[in-house]
Design a protein around this nucleic acid. Structure first.
Length: 353
DNA sequence: AAGTCGGGGGT
DNA sequence: ACCCCAGACTT
């Protein structure tokens, strides 16, 4: 079958499929570019089920771009806590402020202007342009790559830039010019619920008669992806320190590592030979008293396998003594700061008791 | 072009 | 274990 024919069939069938199986989600048929944008950023590398409640909480707290622009980074990060890829949270604040100051609170409709905003890349720019402004552009996310590669039995690796341009041409050809927004929404839903990565149920698929990968028996190996991620192992030792007034010492994580902008207690990493007390003394100049190891957990990120050890201890320094970069925090104030997931769990289990 | 950035769910 | 998810940014 020829490519043009297959794509025609796909477009027609997709429309029928979507009428019956399209998902109802809070941002579907939304017309406010602000809400479209927020939903798209939340859903980057994130499943709909995981992002759903975050979206509602953000809209509830920040109903428009002005409210978001006027907020502080710590509050945005706190609302984002647990969702991961925290540069997204920092970037939505930057972009909100730019949209307010430069565009009077109105998101631009053109791809080029959208791409210039922090946290908006090719996918998100196309999604905003298409869903909010009905511009006729294709969206290319993981679902679209998978669906198109299978429909056409195309083995171009989707993680190479030349193939991505190629797929952009395919998607443009496949697009329904009468309803590009509806087509974009539909193909992502189709990829997310029918043409799934593993063991899709091709027997009931409406595209079965012309799906080239089904004919060729290559569904399970498509799309082709070449790059593999290298995983680094790390061992971190977090020490929750109380002073005599039951205040905790926390610090903000700096740029250049995971969890930038989130908070943590005192932490040491390379313990090469040294015991934790010595490492803390060397790094922070703090003398810990009554150090106690509590437990350890494994925590897996995309590029790192972490082993996290949790300790508690005391210091006897006087209240108000300033330790550079550290802040003293009352237990009830911990809830105002964003912590990495495993630390948030530690707080729940050991401090809010 | 390659490396980095979370957390969760599925197989 | 490994893969993937409505990807983007830095080097």
């Amino acid at each position: 079958m020829e490519r043009g024919f297959v794509l025609d069939q796909f477009r027609k069938n997709l429309k029928f499929w979507y009428a019956d199986h399209g998902r109802d989600m809070p941002w579907v048929n939304e017309s406010d570019p602000y809400k479209i944008w927020l939903s798209e950023v939340i859903l980057q590398q994130t499943r709909v089920a995981q992002g759903w409640n975050y979206y509602n909480r953000f809209i509830d707290r920040f109903p428009n771009v002005f409210e978001l622009a006027a907020s502080e980074e710590d509050e945005v990060l706190k609302l984002w806590q647990g969702l991961g890829y925290y540069s997204r949270a920092r970037n939505i604040l930057k972009t909100a402020r730019i949209v307010v100051e430069k565009y009077e609170g109105k998101f631009p409709a053109e791809m080029a202007a959208l791409l210039a905003l922090p946290g908006i890349g090719p996918y998100t720019a196309a999604a905003i342009s298409s869903f909010a402004f009905k511009v006729c552009v294709p969206v290319l996310d993981g679902n679209v790559y998978r669906v198109l590669s299978r429909i056409l039995d195309d083995h171009s690796p989707i993680d190479e830039s030349v193939s991505q341009k190629y797929y952009c041409n395919i998607a443009t050809e496949a697009l329904d010019p009468e309803d590009s927004s509806g087509f974009n929404q539909a193909i992502m839903d189709f990829g997310a619920t029918q043409c799934v990565p593993k063991q899709p149920n091709c027997e009931i698929c409406i595209m079965g008669d012309f799906c080239q990968a089904k004919q060729a028996g290559t569904v399970e190996i498509l799309p082709i992806k070449l790059k593999k991620t290298k995983i680094r192992k790390r061992e971190l030792h977090f020490v929750w320190i109380n002073n005599l007034l039951d205040q905790h010492i926390i610090e903000r994580r700096e740029a250049g590592d995971i969890w930038e902008g989130l908070y943590q207690p005192i932490v040491v990493e390379e313990t090469s030979g040294m015991v934790v007390e010595e490492s803390v003394q060397k790094k922070y100049g703090i003398t810990i008293k009554d150090l106690k190891w509590n437990y350890k957990v494994k925590h897996v990120l995309t590029h790192q396998k972490l082993e996290l050890n949790f300790y508690s201890g005391m210091i006897e320094d006087e209240l108000g003594q300033k330790i550079s970069g550290l802040k003293l925090c009352n237990p009830e104030n911990l809830k105002n700061f964003a912590f990495p997931k495993p630390l948030a769990e530690y707080i729940e289990k050991n401090i809010y008791l």
